[in-house]
Design a protein around this nucleic acid. Structure first.
Lengths: 161, 161
DNA sequence: TATGAAACTTAGGCCGA
DNA sequence: TCGGCCTAAGTTTCATA
């Protein structure tokens, strides 16, 4: 059984490739090879190896939520009445059914158990989702809402350590 | 001056294209065309139009932070002593210099002004960043930390409304 | 707008260094 | 492991409906 690769198996080429692909996920292999000063074949081999080893987990197009009619980004902190596996499983299943939810984190802390990120059209839309969906999930005992006023910093990738 | 497009200018092809590209950002145009039942040329035209109109803002490779040696994902809620433009600008500039910060949101709420998301190697690494960088930024009057135990739900795109 | 054909570019396998 | 070569596959433009 082969050892699985970790970050310190990566050389400067791999690191550069990861950096560039995090910013430009659809760059052609030729252009990528040129940027890292390799010829196309070894460059492509490295990309495929990074994918196979799980360093790269996928490629995604980024869309502008506002263009799609989502005017309001909301962070919800949610506390549960009981910390039982059943409660958590049921909550997670219900939340996964809501298309507006873009992220759901289980977090530490006394005031919250989950942090949800959702995109909604406007305040009315938010109220609808909160009252008709979120607060009706069994076990939800408290919800704290923050609205995202602005996203600081452009999207940026994680640098290989 | 042309009207800018909004979500209700999108037909079922555009919506489908957006959905697919959010999940598979590097799918070939041919495969994409096949999936939406178009021939490659009009499909590519639509993708380019969606990019030009700002519906698609970019393409990114997704990397696995753990594979890169980041074992701990932290959510920091940060409050500022004074709510002046100077304080905010200075904070944002300092935060943008830290490579571990993957997101910074200006949010509403009495207990916090900013929400940061950072990836660190471990607790020691977290302490270092918190004490040597975050708390030293002028104006930071309070920091509340939550650790991400688990990310619920796989990465998913936003459905066109 | 869609299609289909044609010209061009890229991907990916193979091999020699 | 790299780089070069080669073939297959994909991209992109254009004429046509």
């Amino acid at each position: 059984m082969a050892e699985s690769r970790t970050d310190d198996d990566l050389d400067r080429f791999d690191r550069q490739i990861l950096q560039i692909l995090q910013a430009e996920g659809r760059i052609s292999n030729q252009a990528l090879a040129e940027r890292v000063n390799l010829s196309p074949s070894p460059c492509l081999r490295r990309v495929r190896a990074l994918e196979a080893a799980g360093f790269i987990t996928g490629y995604r197009a980024e869309v502008d939520p506002r263009r799609l009619g989502y005017g309001l980004n909301v962070v919800l902190h949610i506390s549960m009445d009981q910390h039982t596996p059943e409660r958590f499983e049921a909550f997670e299943a219900r939340v996964a059914e809501l298309p507006e939810v873009v992220e759901c984190l289980l977090i530490t802390g006394q005031e919250a158990d989950y942090q949800l990120r959702i995109w909604v059209a406007d305040m009315d839309d938010y109220q609808r989702i909160l009252l008709q969906h979120i607060t009706r999930i069994p076990g939800v005992s408290g919800v704290h809402t923050s609205f995202v006023l602005r996203r600081v910093m452009p999207a940026r990738g994680l640098p290989p350590r």
